[in-house]
Amino acid sequence: MKIAVCLSHVPDTTTRIKIGSQSDQIDYTGVQWVINPWDELALTRALELKELPGSGVDEVVVVNVGDSIADPVIRKALAIGADRAVRVNTAPSDSLSVARILAAFFATERFDLILAGLESSDYNGGMTGMLLGGVLGYRTLNGISALNLEAGKLKLSREMDGSRQILVVEPPLVAVVQKGIAIVPRIPSMRGVMQARTKPLQVVDPVKVEAGLTTIGYSYPKPKGACRMVAPGNENELIALLKTEARVL
């Protein structure tokens, strides 16, 4: 079995996001790029599965759509334990374009299981994984919070709003995963860092797609008004404010 993990590179989640002087782009100067948190959990689970005795997982491959700025992040994924990496060489734009670019790659190499994170922590679109499944025509499921292998099939837990299903699915599958798939992301070991030196990072050209969406402007959200403080002991006052001023009670 071959597992692919779609991997986005995103600014470190604690980074302050700066808008460029023309307000039409983000100023990424000095930003530290990291693996998108959900993708990191997906990778962690893929590696856990591969390491199970007799798992039948031959390979875990990370696939990124990005320019060379993503390389350090991709090599970190290799150091964490992915066997090889593919970078489709273009700066990512809207989610449908990225999904089509990814689908074109996956048409050239078949994977039994393709994992994608719930969303990327930059544009928070949360659509790329499902769109990929749609374009590719593979079985596609979102809300996946647990993933196991069972006799060549995939046993997964799908959390929907208000219910949860345990599903047994025949590959190939695109699974959009969320928290629970793994708890803590793996940290690369020294051995992993060393092995990453010789693992392949293949750079491939993208297919041409026309972006349907364009981000034309950025702005900062209005600062929130000052917090209205209520002295401890005056809880009655807080309740009155919530009733009459905020009108949420």
Binding site: P72, R75, K76
Partner: peptide, 12 residues
């Protein structure tokens, strides 16, 4: 890049 990766691993 490797040195930075190791620093980040230790930091994490």
């Amino acid at each position: 890049e490797e040195q930075l990766m190791i620093r980040q691993a230790a930091r994490d």
